[in-house]
Write a protein that binds this DNA or RNA. Structure first.
Length: 242
DNA sequence: CGTCCAGGTCTAC
DNA sequence: GGTAGACCTGGACGC
């Protein structure tokens, strides 16, 4: 597995690979991965226009707001399932094991995860009950009965259908669905979990707020409500923003 | 040592 | 359609 570096280069991103020149096929694959990771095909102009004079989010219009994604939807789904009902340290443990033991230095192909025995998920990844979900998920993708990549926006499926398909996946409920939708560039849904809820209360100064009420507060952002919510909560992650 | 809970979901009412 | 209870794991916390 060769080292790949992505560096800013005059308003663009340059992907540098150590060693001899890649084949055309490998180049295309790497470019596609980078495009998805950095969300280069997404048009955030309508969002930027909507927040131009926003007291909280105007800063985003300088070019922020592109959440890092994985090279494939499959990888995002697996990782997201590994964030459910556990501490972040657990997520890191599970994903690290999957990459190190099954992926030969990178995130594994679906067939490699499908071929891993339940013992791996239980004793090595220590994924608990999620092991069965990961096994079922990767098996379906490896078999071809489940095509997660077809959920990418460029294939034109409506959000409602994508949501329905995601919610039908093992281990994917409302939280994971909203999270994956965001990573797909479908920004309507707000991500509600044990981190975002208190984070919103802290920022808004409210003592309590139902999910429904929070969603209502972000409705003015329309199709970008989920992104606006996320950026509001993570504003302080960005250097220079308090 | 037991209980609680962390970036929830599933099943059974 | 909404809501209890169970569910793997491991770290934090109270006793």
């Amino acid at each position: 597995m060769r080292r790949v570096t992505v560096v800013p280069a005059g308003g663009e991103l340059a992907v540098q690979v150590a060693g001899p020149k890649l084949s055309a096929c490998a180049q295309a694959e790497l470019t596609a991965a980078a495009r998805r990771m950095f969300r280069l095909d997404e048009d955030l102009a309508p969002f930027y226009a909507a927040i131009e004079n926003d007291p909280v989010l105007a800063w985003v219009g300088k070019g922020a707001g592109r959440m890092l994604a994985s090279p494939t939807v499959f990888e995002d789904v697996v990782k997201t399932v590994c964030t459910t009902n556990c501490a972040w340290s657990g997520t890191v443990r599970m994903v690290t094991a999957v990459v190190k033991e099954l992926g030969e230095g990178a995130f594994p192909e679906p067939h490699a995860m499908a071929a891993a025995p339940p013992k791996f998920y239980r004793d090595v990844a220590r994924a608990g009950y999620r092991g069965a979900y990961l096994k079922a998920l990767s098996t379906a993708v490896a078999k071809g009965s489940l095509d997660l990549e077809s959920l990418r926006p460029e294939y034109g499926l409506p959000d409602s259908e994508v949501e329905e398909q995601l919610l039908a996946l093992p281990g994917v409920g409302p939280y994971a669905c909203a999270h994956i939708m965001m990573l797909l560039g479908r920004y309507h849904r707000l991500i509600f979990d044990s981190w975002t809820r208190p984070a919103y209360l802290r920022l808004s100064g409210k003592r309590r707020a139902s999910d429904r009420a929070i969603a209502r507060a972000f409705r003015p952002y329309g199709a970008f409500a989920g992104l606006a919510f996320w950026l509001t909560l993570t504003r302080h992650w960005v250097a220079g923003e308090s």
